[in-house]
């Protein structure tokens, strides 16, 4: 009888050790922590047509700037509206899932239709250069700024 007890106790001990190890492993593997997505990107300060755009570029996300750069910005006035062509060049082999936004300013530097300019999605394939058009919403626009960032994907990682 004593022997029987000894056996059952040792079985429980090894069982619970196993349980602890299993639980720890499961927790480590499946553990969850919500990592906030990276929402910074590359962009520009206010640029008026005719100004050299390269002096106004800003990099807020060094990781993205290794994969993507603004290679050209062209502007013209068409039907009284400022039209621009933004060239984005990828130096990355894989597809970049991006979103871009233009912001428009009047001649005093005040923002026009704040918050109404939508972020537009753009898939940039490996090493591709895409030309993205933008059009001022009203003839009052005198300068613009732009911003490009990756579409944040929420991953739950340990």
């Amino acid at each position: 009888m004593k022997n029987m007890n000894m056996i059952s106790i040792s079985a429980i001990t090894s069982g619970s050790t196993l349980l602890v190890v299993a639980l720890t492993t499961t927790l480590l593997l499946s553990g969850c922590k919500n990592v906030p997505p990276m929402t910074s990107g590359i962009g520009s300060e206010q640029i008026a047509p005719g100004q050299k755009y390269s002096q106004y570029l800003q990099v807020h996300n060094a990781e993205l700037s290794k994969k993507l750069h603004i290679s050209d910005i062209r502007t013209r006035t068409h039907n009284d509206l400022l039209e621009l062509n933004l060239s984005l060049t990828s130096t990355y082999e894989k597809t970049l899932k991006l979103q871009y936004q233009f912001t428009w300013f009047d001649k005093e530097g005040f923002v026009i239709e704040a918050g109404k300019s939508p972020w537009k999605p753009l898939n940039l394939h490996g090493m591709q250069t895409a030309i993205v058009p933008g059009l001022a919403p009203t003839p009052r626009v005198a300068s613009y700024s732009l911003y490009v960032r990756e579409i944040p994907e929420k991953f739950f990682r340990y």
Partner: peptide, 24 residues
């Protein structure tokens, strides 16, 4: 105005993209 990818159905980004492109 941010890009929304909750599901595959017609969403706010599609509406904004369509409206902006057609107007432009």
């Amino acid at each position: 105005t941010a890009v929304e990818t909750t599901d595959i159905n017609f969403g706010s980004t599609d509406l904004q993209k369509v409206a902006a492109e057609m107007t432009d």
